[in-house]
Design a protein around this nucleic acid. Structure first.
Lengths: 232, 232
DNA sequence: CGAAAAACGAGAGCACTGCTCTTGATTTAC
DNA sequence: GTAAATCAAGAGCAGTGCTCTCGTTTTTCG
């Protein structure tokens, strides 16, 4: 009988806790997540769990990072998969995000729903948090660098100079900066927020029964906003 | 000393409870709302509150209806105010919605954030809930009926026939039906979900520091999606 | 008018939560 | 091989939603 070293036991038990936490998150959501129930599941007394987790908020933070990483993987993988067109790459990535959200609604709500009670996102979460928007931006940037980005359709000359500057600066702030005019970046922000807005509506049933097939609606919307960014 | 009739007292105390609940919602949010704390505030014992409120969920339902009504008022008032152009009416309504959301973030989260723990929206909430989207739709419908709606810019002939039918049917399902082709309705759904997506991002700080003035960004986005619906 | 019925406020109590502290056993480190 | 660190367990505190009972007060109705 080989004895288990204490460090190994710590890793194993921490994993058990996180697994139970993820299971519970998937079943009852973040608000219903109970440290005592987790302890019960893995056959420990509740106070012992605090040897591995600082607090409920600490556990939530880890779950958020996990979820951001999972969704980030999905988005990055979809965004770097072979695609015939830039627009096809965009819609495929959007669809992949949607599929993940529908498969993991509680995780999605944890990331994009109301902030949990008095929970303030620590800085650890912003890193993984921006992966998905960066993945989307990279699609646009790639197209822009290859001069495949259509010029913004209708020129709306009504951006304030300050806003236009800020928007242009955004295109330089991503990991792979690309040349873009303010309207294009605005279209991207519009498209990005639109994807998550529609997705949140679908998940919270705000669009109950609007159309027969929500996936078709989402795809059409994604294609539309992608097109308006200039992707072809 | 005129005595208070029991029915009057019931109304008064119910109002006190709702007032305290609204105050607490505004301060600590839906998740932190405590029936016992409300009881304490109005100088009652907690069990007595249950004479006036069935449960915590019941209280939340009333708060949701209240908030929907408040936001519905704001949206309807903005949408029916005098405006030079249809596009101006659209952006003014969007801005009014944003201002309300920023002034009442917890109420906004109650309506458009994650659904509260195991709380299933009863049918009472859908009536007031659709007022704001109906108000937005009315702007488009009004323009359409007066033939002031520009034809959808780039025709994307890629809607499935079923989706196109469903979208057209939507324009007939609102209180004041109007003639619209599928692409216009799609643009409306895109615009609508975009407004709330960007607003949610702003409120949950997902767009932290993207631009200097979030209001400018929101207005520009609203103008853009309104324009793409065909509003001028 | 007076008795029966309904409504009410208070209190105790149950099951649950997050979290802390102490206690005794076990494993590491020196 | 002893001292230090780590650990699981249990008790306990303050808080929650909610139920039930018990007197009291108000309303209803014969």
């Amino acid at each position: 009988m080989s004895r288990e070293t204490r460090a190994d036991a710590r890793l194993r038990i921490t994993n058990e806790i996180m697994e139970a936490a993820r299971r519970q998150l998937g079943e009852v959501g973040a608000a219903g997540l109970s440290l005592r129930e987790i302890a019960r599941e893995i056959g420990m007394v509740s106070s012992a769990v605090y040897r591995y987790v600082d607090s409920r908020d600490d556990l939530l933070t880890r779950l958020i990072i996990d979820a951001y990483d999972a969704l980030g993987d999905v988005a990055e993988r979809a965004a770097s998969a072979p695609a015939d067109t830039d627009l096809g790459r965009w819609t495929a990535t959007a669809s992949a995000i949607r599929r993940w959200a529908i498969a993991h609604p509680h995780e999605y709500q944890l990331l994009y729903g109301s902030p949990v009670p008095g929970y303030a996102a620590p800085d650890d979460t912003v890193g993984p948090g921006i992966r998905v928007v960066v993945a989307l931006a990279r699609i646009v940037g790639e197209a822009a660098r290859h001069e495949r980005l259509a010029a913004p359709g209708e020129p709306l000359g009504d951006l304030t100079p300050q806003l236009a500057d800020d928007l242009r600066a955004l295109a330089d702030a991503v990991p792979d900066p690309f040349p873009a005019d303010a309207t294009t970046v605005l279209a991207f922000v519009v498209g990005w927020s639109q994807l998550f807005g529609l997705l949140s509506f679908e998940l919270t049933n705000q669009t109950r029964g609007y159309v027969g097939d929500d996936a078709d609606l989402f795809d059409a919307a994604a294609r539309r906003v992608g097109h308006q960014i200039g992707l072809r």
